[in-house]
Design a protein around this nucleic acid. Structure first.
Length: 496
RNA sequence: GGGCCGUUAGCUCAAUUGGCAGAGCAACUGACUCUUAAUCAGUAGGUUGAAGGUUCGAUUCCUUCACGGCUCACCA
C-alpha cells in the first residue's frame, strides 16, 4: 500500500466504508458558531465560560495515540488543535474517526481548553465529515518545492507554503488599496473591450481570435488606452481600469502573456502633475499595505518617500555612461554609439528608437531607486503630446523602480491632425517591416476630432508592482496561474 | 527561438570511478488516553521524465524528444 495508485485506492476504500456506515462524505453545509480565527480571537471568554462551539476546517496534521488523537484543523490559513477521545465519542464513532485522513474537511463540536503544553485546543464531543479527500497533500515539513508542480497545481502551493499565501493576500490588498485611492480622488472605474477589432494603445504583437456569428477577426487587447480616451471625449474626466492585457511575446521572469494593468486618465493634467500624483499614490499604497515606505527588494532597500529623481532620457544615458548628451544629436551619431555598445540596430530604426535602445542598455538596470525618466523621443511615442519647444521629444515619463519599468505615462496627444500624422508614421514603419508598429484607428481619430480635453494618462503594471512589494524575483510568483507549456498527458496510473 | 542547468517513491532529497536504486516524512499493520516534525515495532512502495545508443553491466556516458528553471533576443 504505498505508491500513489495504492494510496488513492486506500482512500477510495475508506470512502466506501464511510458510505456503508451511513456517512455522507460530501454533505451540503455546516453551521459553525465560530471560524477558527474567531475562536482564537475570543479564546479567553470561551475557555473561561466553557462554552460549546462548532467550527470546521481541513485536517492538516494527525497524531494518533490509540484511544485518543490530536490533529490540527486549518481554516482560511489559521490553525487550531483538536483533541479526540474515544471516551468522549463512543467506540463506534471513534473507530470511524480513524477512517479520516490528512486533507479531509471536518466540522467539530466541543469546548476549548489548554493542554499541558499550553496549546489552545478543542476537545471534541462530536464531529462530522464535511469532505473526503482522495489524494495526499504534500509533505508537511519540507512543503512543496518543485516549481513546476507549484505553478501547475497552485492550490497545493497555497496549502503547503504560507509565504505563497501571503503574496496573494498582499496582492489582493494592494489592488483594493489602489481602487480606494483612486475612488477617493473622484475617479470612476470602467471596463472597456478586451476583444478589439484593432489592437491599439501600445506597441506589441497581439493574440488574434475569431467571432463566428459576426464572422470577424478580433484581437485580444494589448492595452485599453484608446477606449479610455474615448471616455474622456465622452465627458468622464477621471477614469481608470484594472484589467488584463494580452501580448503575444516571449515569456520571462518579467513577462506573462496575460498581465494586469492599471490605466488611469486625468483631464486638465499634464505629465508633471502625474509624476506628483504617482509619487503620492505609490508611497501611500506602501504605507497602507506594508506599513512603511521602504521596500526590501533583491538585497536592496528602496525608498519610496517622495520626491523621486527625475531625469530626461538623454540625461540618464549621460549619467550612467561616458556618453555625452551632445553626442546623441542625430541619427548617425546614435547609430555609431549603438555599434560601439554592440546593440543590435535595424536598418530603418529611427533616431528615437536607437536612443531608447541605448537608454535601456546603459541606464535602465541601474535605476534601483524610484526614478522618472522623462522626455521620450517622439518616434517611439505615437500617442504622446510633443514638447512645445522641441517636437522631437514628447511629454512622457516612465517610472523605474528596482531596475524594472513600473509605469508609463504621458500628456495625451489630443490634436487629431497630429495624431493622424503619428499614426501614418506608424503605418509606414509597419510597411517597412516593423510588425509591432501601431495601426491607424479611424474611429479613435473621429473621437479626437470631437475634442478631448487636455489629459494625462498613465499605465502601471500591477504584477511588477506586486513583485516589488513582495520581494519576488519572478512574475510567476505573483500570478496565481502563470502561463506554462501544455502538460504531458496524465498517465493511466495517475488517474486511478 | 539560442545557450546553460535540471527531472530518482505521493513529498523532500541521497546513490563514490559505469557495478545489488536508498533515507526521512506521507501510506499500511500492530501497540499506545495531553501529543505537537508524537513515540515504538513491523510492512509495502521505483519503467530513475520518454525513446534510442555504447557497454558484460547505465540513475551515472552519448543522441533525440518532452517538461521546468536561469539567461539572451522581443516586450511591459
Amino acid at each position: 500500500m504505498a505508491n500513489l495508485a495504492d494510496e488513492l485506492q486506500q482512500r477510495q476504500h475508506k470512502l466506501a466504508e464511510l458510505r456503508n456506515k451511513g456517512t455522507n462524505p460530501y454533505p451540503q453545509r455546516y453551521e459553525r458558531t465560530h471560524s477558527i480565527a474567531e475562536l482564537i480571537r475570543q479564546k479567553d471568554k470561551l475557555v473561561a465560560d466553557e462554552l460549546k462551539i462548532k467550527t470546521a476546517g481541513r485536517i492538516v496534521t494527525w497524531r494518533g495515540h490509540g484511544k485518543t488523537c490530536f490533529a490540527h484543523l486549518d481554516s482560511d490559513g489559521t490553525r487550531i488543535q483538536i483533541y479526540v477521545r474515544q471516551d468522549q465519542l463512543g467506540e463506534a464513532d471513534y473507530q470511524q474517526f480513524k477512517l479520516l485522513d490528512i486533507g479531509d474537511f471536518v466540522g467539530v463540536e466541543g469546548s476549548l481548553f489548554y493542554t499541558r503544553t499550553n496549546e489552545l485546543t478543542i476537545v471534541v464531543d462530536k464531529y462530522n465529515l464535511l469532505t473526503k479527500s482522495l489524494r495526499p497533500l504534500p509533505e508537511k515539513w519540507h512543503g512543496l518545492k518543485d516549481v513546476e508542480t507549484r505553478y501547475r497545481q497552485r492550490y497545493l502551493d497555497l496549502l503547503a507554503n504560507p509565504d505563497v499565501r501571503r503574496i496573494f493576500l498582499l496582492r489582493s490588498r494592494l489592488i483594493q488599496a489602489i481602487r480606494d485611492y483612486l475612488n477617493q480622488q473622484d475617479f470612476i472605474e470602467v471596463e472597456t473591450p478586451m476583444m478589439q477589432p484593432l489592437p491599439g494603445g501600445a506597441t506589441a504583437r497581439p493574440f488574434i481570435t475569431h467571432h463566428n456569428a459576426l464572422d470577424m477577426d478580433l484581437y485580444l487587447r494589448i492595452a485599453p488606452e484608446l477606449y479610455l480616451k474615448r471616455l474622456l471625449v465622452g465627458g468622464f474626466e477621471r477614469v481608470y481600469e484594472i484589467n488584463r492585457n494580452f501580448r503575444n511575446e516571449g515569456l520571462s521572469t518579467e513577462h506573462n502573456p496575460e498581465f494586469t494593468m492599471l490605466e488611469f486618465y486625468m483631464a486638465y493634467a499634464d505629465y508633471n502633475k502625474l509624476m506628483d500624483f504617482t509619487e503620492d499614490m505609490l508611497a501611500s499604497l506602501a504605507q497602507q499595505v506594508l506599513g512603511k515606505q521602504q521596500l526590501e527588494y533583491a538585497d536592496k532597500t528602496i525608498e519610496l518617500t517622495p520626491p523621486w529623481k527625475r531625469l530626461t532620457m538623454l540625461e540618464a544615458i549621460a549619467a550612467h555612461s561616458s556618453i555625452k548628451e551632445t553626442e546623441l544629436g542625430d541619427l548617425k551619431q546614435v547609430q555609431d554609439i549603438a555599434g560601439e555598445l554592440n546593440i543590435p540596430v535595424d536598418k530603418h530604426d529611427s533616431w528615437g528608437k536607437i536612443v531608447q535602445k541605448i537608454f535601456e542598455q546603459v541606464a535602465e538596470p541601474k535605476l534601483i531607486q524610484p526614478t522618472f525618466i522623462i522626455d521620450f523621443p517622439t518616434e517611439v511615442s505615437p500617442l504622446s503630446k510633443a514638447k512645445p519647444d522641441n517636437p522631437a521629444l514628447v511629454e512622457r515619463f516612465e517610472l523605474f523602480i528596482g531596475g524594472k519599468e513600473i509605469a508609463n505615462a504621458f500628456s495625451e496627444l489630443n490634436d487629431p491632425q497630429d495624431q493622424r500624422r503619428r499614426f501614418e508614421a506608424q503605418v509606414a514603419e509597419r510597411a517597412a517591416g516593423d510588425d509591432e508598429a501601431q495601426y491607424l484607428d479611424e474611429d479613435f481619430l473621429r473621437a479626437l476630432e470631437h475634442g478631448m480635453p487636455p489629459t494625462a494618462g498613465e499605465g502601471i503594471g500591477i504584477d511588477r508592482l506586486v513583485m516589488l512589494f513582495t520581494n519576488s524575483q519572478s512574475i510567476r510568483e505573483v500570478i496565481l496561474f502563470p502561463q506554462l507549456r501544455g502538460e504531458k498527458q496524465t498517465t493511466t496510473r495517475d488517474k486511478e
